[in-house]
């Protein structure tokens, strides 16, 4: 009788432990995504200022500027789920990257004080976004590990927890970075 109680007690404890671990990892993912979201918002908020200062110079990029403003409005919309937010962010990053490359064609703009200040702030935000992305990916990996590794995978199945996607940098964006370096020479 006693051994049965002890064994049952241990099993109960492990169940509690596994449940709490999974919840904690799931919440950590949400927590870090919130941090990432906050930094992305800072970047989105920078856009009107950026558009205003380049509009007069970048006469050939009017369409790009309109598109990117539209994207921003969409991204700041209410009740978007995480996957949509990430998808929009990837599009936005890609367009912004293209825009910053196009700046190379407008030497007067490149020398503009206001623009340089904005560019500096944008670069710093990029560093912060990169850090947030890495933190998010680590938390997602920890979460995925927990729901797929033994023994917590049984618990995860019962809780109906699903794998999450890491935030990958699209290959097109990587190509943009290379072009930027070309211009720097």
């Amino acid at each position: 009788m006693e051994t049965f109680l002890i064994v049952a007690g241990l099993i109960l404890l492990s169940i509690v432990f596994m449940y709490n671990t999974l919840i904690s990892k799931k919440n950590q993912v949400e927590n870090i995504f919130a941090g990432l979201d906050a930094i992305l918002k800072k970047r989105y908020d920078l856009l009107p200022n950026l558009v205003a200062s380049v509009k007069e110079y970048m006469v050939h990029e009017r369409i790009t500027l309109e598109k990117i403003t539209e994207l921003r409005t969409k991204a700041l919309g209410e009740n978007l789920d995480n996957a949509t937010k990430i998808a929009l962010e990837k599009q936005f990053s890609s367009m912004l990257g293209n825009l910053m490359v196009a700046v190379e064609n407008y030497p007067t703009l490149k020398a503009n004080e206001n623009f340089l200040h904005l560019q500096g702030t944008l670069n710093e935000l990029e560093e912060q976004i990169s850090a947030a992305r890495r933190a998010y990916n680590q938390s997602v990996t920890d979460y995925n590990n927990a729901i797929e590794m033994f023994p917590t995978n049984f618990m995860a199945n019962l809780m109906k927890l699903e794998r999450k996607e890491v935030f990958s940098v699209p290959s097109s964006e990587r190509a943009n970075v290379d072009v930027k370096n070309l211009f720097k020479n």
């Binding site: 870090i32 941090g35 990432l36 930094i39 560093e127 912060q128 990169s130 850090a131 947030a132 890495r134 933190a135 680590q138 938390s139």
Partner: peptide, 10 residues
């Protein structure tokens, strides 16, 4: 802070 630590440690 998970995010700021990675901001520092690029």
């Amino acid at each position: 802070d998970q995010i700021e630590s990675r901001y520092i440690l690029s």
